[in-house]
Design a binder for these strands. Structure first.
Length: 282
DNA sequence: CACCATGTTCCTTG
DNA sequence: CCAAGGAACATGGT
């Protein structure tokens, strides 16, 4: 479930293992995922590059590459809906939905994505369009208020606009609004100063909590059948319980609100499901 | 079979 | 210009 917290957790794990590794070869199984590059081109550029660092911006992973013979590069990864990265033994069997693999010396960084909405590319234009990082110290309640002011869009839709704030997706937009006791249908520009303050606080607390819990779906260190250690970003059997417990409204249609007991409702906004409590979100 | 799904981008309509 | 809706992308789960 890759929104900001999941990508952040993944980034922290990758950052423990990748820095200093050299990319020896690139295997591309689904060329669309690396667009606008072509496989041969990407392989030529990346081969020999050192993975110097990993960062996150919104829902994007950034791999900082040191290239001995060219300028420095940033490889941008996005998990889409179903993307996963994991580090596997170089000789290990690839999963059925591997889309790209970066071969290192003893291991390989595998990008798996059944639905193939993800990206791995040197094209940074999507990242450049992003709004501020919600957990950044620079990002204040006043900053948020400014970005909502004058908008007639529903606040929930506005919150998911990556140019307004980076990294908030469908799940955490609903969760943050529940926590702030604000109706997802309220127009963004109609929020009072107090409501903006509450939303700012709620959004940051929601994201921080999710990160602290190791993301909504924990990393499965066992991998599936690999027997290799090292992480695997994906669902494990026991993950479901934690996942449900932590979400207060998302996917909880018909269940009683934990704050006021009213029945959680569901509606479409911008083509996506929104969940909220009509009792305490006004 | 129908319908749902964590995301992004482009296009059309009002 | 803004807001809303739909389609496309491609696949899997219920």
């Amino acid at each position: 479930m890759p929104e900001l917290p999941e990508v952040e957790v993944l980034k922290r794990h990758l950052a423990e293992h990748l820095p200093g590794r050299i990319i020896r070869k690139v295997q591309v199984f689904h060329p669309k995922v690396i667009r606008p590059h072509r496989p041969a081109e990407l392989g030529r550029v990346l081969a020999g590059c050192c993975l110097e660092g990993v960062a996150r911006r919104g829902k994007y992973l950034l791999f900082f590459l040191g290239a001995p013979h060219h300028q420095k590069l940033t490889l941008v990864g996005h998990l889409g809906m179903t993307g996963r990265f994991y580090l596997a033994d170089r000789k290990g069997q690839l999963p059925a939905h591997a889309v790209v693999s970066l071969l290192l010396d003893q291991q390989q960084l595998v990008f798996e994505d059944p639905r193939r909405f993800g990206r791995l590319t040197l094209d940074t234009t999507s990242v450049e369009r992003l709004g501020p990082e919600p957990l950044d110290n620079q990002f204040t309640a006043q900053h948020l208020q400014k970005r909502l002011a004058g908008s007639r869009q529903a606040i929930k839709v506005r919150l998911m606009d990556q140019r307004v704030v980076a990294g908030v997706g469908n799940i955490y937009a609903s969760e943050a609004l529940w926590r702030a006791r604000i109706s997802p249908r309220k127009r963004a520009g109609q929020l009072s100063r107090e409501e903006c303050q509450r939303l700012w606080r709620a959004l940051r607390a929601t994201l921080r909590e999710a990160i602290a819990c190791g993301s909504t779906i924990p990393l499965d260190f066992a991998g599936r059948e690999s027997g290799q250690r090292l992480f695997y970003y994906g669902a494990s059997e026991t993950a479901g319980g934690h996942y449900q417990e932590r979400l207060r409204v998302y996917d909880g249609e018909g269940q009683p609100c934990r704050r006021c007991g009213a029945k959680i409702r569901r509606a479409k906004q911008g083509g996506r499901s929104t969940f909220w409590c009509p009792g305490c979100q006004r």
